[in-house]
Structures are given as structure tokens and as C-alpha cells.
């Protein structure tokens, strides 16, 4: 399998503050990885940097998409090359109807109307289409809307930020089934950020990364580690990797 995404020794700053201090990860085509970490550990910052967010400055290290370094490639160009990011908290955009945004994103990726309809149905978001994006959406609706935008952009590499936080179990299950579709039909690689691990009950994963204080401190394909983290907390990881962290 070709390497879809490679992040090597990445350091990232926002407003001159270093938020990602050392991050390396790798995602092969069709692979799913979880990225776990406590609040404020830099997970969202890492995704933003990978997606090319203009406020997240790469200080050193590299981001490769299908073998090509994209550090200086603007975000829209990365999307063209198959990268897509589902936000944890998208902004509310008054005046922009969700239907309009969904159709425009779909048309950029060449999605047809039929596919968009299927996505809408799959995520149970028909009632949101004529509302302004995010306006009056519940937490679960907002997550489902973001996942819909992700699906219609037909990504080869999907970055998904906290799909399971602040939502009810039903919404998590709907989102999980959409992610199954994404993997099955589009063969997308997925990097899923979570701090509760709830999504892992419904989406199988190939490997797991743990990020603490801006560093990726653990990479494993041992799924039992997730159970350890969920039962013992991130302090267990901290203790386990205390040596590396202090060095």
C-alpha cells in the first residue's frame, strides 16, 4: 500500500506559540488511525497544520501527501490532491445555506446529485439543508453536517476532528456508519482525533497514536492499549513514556 500521509518531526506554531512540538505519523492508503490525547495536547493543531490552515505555521519537519511534500501548498490545493478535514467546531455562517455549501463542495470534487442525496439520507440531515450553516444546529447535527461535507469531498485522506465529542450515542452510530461508507466505497485513509475513544466502539482502526503536550509519544497497533488508556487515563501513558517526554 502506498503511503497516503507522512508527517515527519513536525513542529507547528500559532501566534508564535509552539503548539506541536514533535509529531510523526504515517497513514497508508485505506488505513484508519486514531489520534488520542488529553484536551489541549495539540491534536486539533496537528490536523490544522496537515490541512494547511494559514494560521498554523510549520516551524520544521515535513508533511507529505502521496509522497510529495506539501508544507508550502495552500489548503485548497491540498483539498484538490485529496485531503479533507472535518472540523470539531465549524463556524456558524449566517446567510450561507447548508444546501448551498454542500452542493458547492460536492461540485468541486465532481460528486453527482445522486451521491449528495445518498449522503444526506445516510446522515439524516435533510431537515438542515435550508438552514444557514450551523445556525441552530444541535451538537450532533453539526457533526453530521461536517461529516456530510467530508463525504461529498470524496477525500483520499480524511482528517476527522472529534466526531464523538458532545454528541449522543445515536449520532455517533450514524457518523460511524458514514465513515464505514467512506472507507468502503472511497477507500479513504482516515485519521480520527478523539479524546473519549467512543468512536472506536463503532469504527475499527489499524493503529493508534497518542499525543501529549504537543508530542506524539506512542504509536501502536495493539488495540488493547486503547482499553488501558480508557480505563487508566492519559496519566498512565505519561508515566509509561515519562522518560521520552522528559528527554
Amino acid at each position: 500500500m502506498e503511503k497516503a500521509l507522512e508527517v515527519h518531526e513536525l513542529r507547528v506554531a500559532v501566534n508564535d506559540k509552539e503548539v506541536v512540538k514533535r509529531a510523526s505519523l504515517e497513514l497508508r492508503e485505506g488505513e484508519t488511525a486514531l489520534l488520542l490525547g488529553p484536551n489541549g495536547s495539540g491534536k486539533t493543531s496537528l490536523l490544522c497544520a496537515i490541512a494547511g490552515h494559514p494560521r498554523y505555521k510549520v516551524l520544521s519537519g515535513s508533511i507529505k501527501l502521496f509522497g510529495e511534500v506539501v508544507n508550502d501548498v495552500p489548503s485548497f490545493e491540498r483539498v484538490k490532491r485529496g485531503l479533507a478535514l472535518a472540523f470539531q467546531k465549524p463556524p456558524i455562517i449566517k446567510g450561507l445555506r447548508f444546501r448551498d455549501l454542500l452542493n458547492r463542495v460536492a461540485s468541486k470534487s465532481g460528486c453527482d446529485e445522486k451521491f449528495v442525496k445518498e449522503v444526506v439520507q445516510l446522515l439524516s440531515i435533510e431537515h438542515l439543508l435550508d438552514r444557514y450553516y450551523g445556525y441552530g444546529f444541535s451538537g450532533g447535527e453539526l457533526k453530521r453536517a461536517e461529516i456530510a461535507l467530508l463525504l461529498v469531498s470524496k477525500p483520499r485522506v480524511a482528517l476527522i476532528d472529534e466526531p464523538d465529542s458532545g454528541v449522543d450515542v445515536d449520532s455517533v452510530m450514524i457518523i460511524a456508519s458514514a465513515l464505514h461508507e467512506l472507507r468502503k466505497n472511497a477507500g479513504s485513509s482516515m485519521l480520527i482525533v478523539t479524546h473519549t475513544g467512543l468512536i472506536s466502539r463503532h469504527v475499527s482502526f489499524d493503529k493508534l497514536y497518542v499525543m501529549i503536550n504537543g508530542e506524539i509519544v506512542m504509536e501502536t497497533s495493539d488495540k488493547m492499549v486503547l482499553e488501558d488508556i480508557l480505563s487508566k487515563g492519559f496519566s498512565w501513558v505519561k508515566k509509561k513514556y515519562a522518560k521520552e517526554l522528559s528527554s
Binding site: C48, A51, G52, H53, P54, R55, P74, S75, F76, V79, K80, A84, L85, F87, P90, P91, I93, K94, G95, L96, L101, R104, V105, K108, S109, Y132, L149, S153
Partner: peptide
């Protein structure tokens, strides 16, 4: 920034926000 991360160029994103 959100729209640019969704694949719109800066000009496209500004136009979309003005249309909104």
C-alpha cells in the same frame, strides 16, 4: 479560513461569504 480548508480559494471564499 474554514471555507479555504474546504477547498475554496481565498477569492472564492470571499465571494461565497459576500453572497451569504
Amino acid at each position: 479560513e474554514y471555507l479555504m480548508l474546504k477547498g475554496f480559494t481565498e477569492r472564492e471564499a470571499i465571494a461565497l461569504l459576500v453572497r451569504s
